[in-house]
Simulated assay, not measured.
Amino acid sequence: MDIRAYKGRGALSNQASRYRQSTVQAEADGWWQEAVVERVDTLVQPDLSKSVLSHNQSPDVPFDQSINPYRGCEHGCIYCFARPTHAYLDLSPGLDFESRLFYKPRTAELLRQELSHPNYVCKPIGLGTNTDPYQPIEKRFRITRQILETLLECRHPVTIVTKGTLILRDLDLLEALAQRNLVHVMMSVPTLDRSLKRTLEPRAADPARRIRVIRALTERGVPTGVLVAPVIPALTDHHIEAVLQASADAGASEAGYVLLRLPREVAPLFEQWLHAHRPERAQHVLSIMRQMHGGATYDAAFGRRQTGQGPFAELLRKRFELARRRHGLDRERRGRLDCGQFRPPVEQMALF
């Protein structure tokens, strides 16, 4: 397997999808001289899905339904728990996940159809639950903005999780939704260390810019919190207090955290990244992860997958709660988002 770092990319390899029935292993025999690839370009293709609303029954996540306008994510965060979903497309959760992207051109149309269904029950829709709705290609395709326009028209509540500063482009829509108690935003900030961020989240916004986004949103009345996700033991956990303080100073109203998750292909990808970029910390990070998951680097059980268990997990929880209270980020969200205003979209009849 070819393992090397590419500028602007998080993954160091491109292992084949686990669903492929056969794989090819290259062997150097001295005859074939393969050209050295210096960069991995982004390829974007349409996704012609016939529905856009996904429904969730997991007891440890705070949403029942969501929309993911894109498959794959150009931010290239090496720790992204959504990477294994690219295997369903017969693509690699490695470099393919951050360079072979798909957009859903019919999202707004399909959303209107689903909201118009007689049996539809209004519940907040989550954006950013799998891949970032404000990743760089959103600037070109504007799918997330189309979703927000539709939800505002229908007076439908929405929650957003992002690390993209492009969200400020949609301040007009977010402010209008906020005035009706129909939106809540969580900005993801796992670290304020710019040098670490450059390899950990290569195409995501600078941490300081994300803090400024929190300030800009809250100044316009958009309820915004900070999500310290993921917390990586022995690598980013000592940044928790600084992230919460900076976010509180910027006006954040609440805070949450999620422990590093390493499902399926994410574990070997993250281990490759550790040994390449933080070799002196690699064994320590993995050792603590195993302590928090009963000897494995990941436990997929509900209630444990996002927090871990054991002494280190408990210490992490107490540290976070103490810092959250100290900075006033433990306030309950001001009421729940209002589902009572929902009105199904009105389809305009053709004149002729």
Rank of each mutant, 00 (worst) to 15 (best):
residue 62 P to S: 11
residue 178 A to I: 03
residue 164 G to C: 11
residue 17 S to Q: 03
residue 104 K to C: 11
residue 24 V to G: 12
residue 339 C to S: 14
residue 351 L to P: 00
residue 227 L to E: 03
residue 218 T to G: 06
residue 326 R to S: 12
residue 257 Y to H: 09
residue 307 T to M: 08
residue 235 L to Y: 11
residue 219 E to I: 01
residue 50 K to G: 10
residue 329 L to M: 10
residue 109 E to A: 15
residue 210 R to C: 04
residue 177 L to N: 00
residue 200 L to I: 08
residue 124 P to W: 05
residue 119 N to M: 14
residue 77 C to A: 09
residue 140 R to V: 08
residue 8 G to N: 10
residue 62 P to R: 12
residue 168 L to E: 13
residue 323 A to P: 02
residue 32 W to R: 14
residue 211 I to R: 05
residue 10 G to K: 06
residue 99 S to H: 02
residue 19 Y to G: 05
residue 276 A to I: 00
residue 205 A to H: 05
residue 199 T to Q: 07
residue 204 A to H: 08
residue 116 S to R: 11
residue 72 G to L: 07
residue 104 K to D: 02
residue 307 T to Q: 09
residue 67 I to E: 00
residue 34 E to W: 09
residue 333 R to H: 15
residue 273 W to V: 06
residue 44 V to Y: 02
residue 286 L to P: 07
residue 37 V to E: 13
residue 222 V to L: 07
residue 276 A to N: 01
residue 74 E to H: 05
residue 268 P to H: 09
residue 11 A to I: 10
residue 176 A to F: 04
residue 43 L to T: 14
residue 319 R to N: 14
residue 222 V to C: 02
residue 116 S to G: 13
residue 281 R to Y: 09
residue 351 L to R: 09
residue 280 E to C: 04
residue 137 I to A: 07
residue 232 I to E: 04
residue 63 F to Y: 15
residue 53 L to T: 07
residue 109 E to I: 13
residue 283 Q to V: 08
residue 272 Q to H: 14
residue 298 Y to C: 04
residue 59 P to L: 14
residue 74 E to P: 01
residue 123 K to P: 00
residue 233 P to G: 12
residue 242 A to Y: 08
residue 185 V to G: 00
residue 200 L to Q: 07
residue 126 G to Y: 05
residue 2 D to K: 11
residue 28 A to H: 13
residue 144 T to L: 01
residue 58 S to E: 15
residue 4 R to L: 11
residue 11 A to V: 14
residue 351 L to F: 12
residue 315 L to Y: 13
residue 215 R to G: 11
residue 319 R to T: 14
residue 21 Q to G: 15
residue 95 L to T: 06
residue 97 F to G: 06
residue 63 F to L: 05
residue 51 S to Y: 10
